[in-house]
Structures are given as structure tokens and as C-alpha cells.
Amino acid sequence: MAKYEAHPNYTVKYGDEKRKTIDFDPYGKYETSDKTEISVLNGLCPKYVTCVEADKPKSQSKATGKQSKATTEDNAPSSADASDE
């Protein structure tokens, strides 16, 4: 199961000729267990939709850990940034 947030009443159209829709509620929230919907919504993250909670597959736990470490290092202020203040 995954939970997402977007603008209130946000609608995503997908599938053959855009015949299927995902409709967010008036509070901008949506929950799903459908793998196709999760794939579609994850493709829109983080620009249009935010994933606030998701079941994580066990096979991706190592990749996620490496990514988190890289993100932390990239966000750390460098000594050059500190000298500009």
C-alpha cells in the first residue's frame, strides 16, 4: 500500500488513450495497493505528487540505503559556503 499527497482534487489520467484515472480527494490525499497506480504515481514524484508512505520491497533496501547516504552528503554545506557568510 502507498499513500500520496498532491493538490486537492488532483486527477491523473493514464493507460490506453488515458481512459483510467486516479482522483485525489478534496484534501489532496490518495491511497492505493494497485501496482500499476503506484508505478504511475511514483513516476510523477516528487514534482507533481509526494509519496508520504509506501511498503518497501525487500530487494530494494540496499539501493535505498546507498541513495540516502549520497543525498545526505550532497546536502551538506561545504566549507566554501560557510566562508561566504
Score class of each variant (00 low, 15 high):
Glu5Leu: 07
Tyr10Cys: 10
Thr11Lys: 14
Val12Tyr: 00
Val12Gln: 03
Val12His: 04
Asp16Phe: 10
Glu17Gln: 14
Lys18His: 04
Arg19His: 14
Arg19Trp: 02
Thr21Trp: 00
Pro26Arg: 13
Tyr27Val: 10
Tyr27Leu: 15
Gly28Met: 01
Gly28Asp: 01
Gly28Pro: 00
Gly28Arg: 00
Lys29Ser: 05
Tyr30Gln: 00
Ser33Lys: 12
Asp34Gly: 02
Lys35Gly: 06
Glu37Leu: 07
Ile38Trp: 01
Ser39Cys: 08
Ser39Phe: 08
Leu41Lys: 02
Leu41Arg: 05
Asn42Val: 09
Gly43Pro: 02
Pro46Lys: 06
Lys47Tyr: 13
Tyr48Ala: 08
Thr50Tyr: 01
Ala54Val: 13
Lys56Met: 08
Pro57Cys: 09
Ser59Asp: 09
Ser61Val: 14
Ser61Asn: 09
Gly65Asn: 08
Lys66Leu: 03
Gln67Ile: 06
Ser68Thr: 13
Ser68Glu: 12
Ser68Gly: 07
Ser68Met: 12
Lys69Asp: 15
Lys69Gly: 05
Lys69Ser: 10
Thr71Gln: 15
Glu73Arg: 07
Ala76Ser: 13
Pro77Arg: 14
Ser78Phe: 00
Ser79Met: 11
Ser79Ala: 13
Ala80Val: 12
Asp81Glu: 14
Asp84Cys: 05
Asp84Trp: 15
Glu85Arg: 11
Glu85Leu: 09
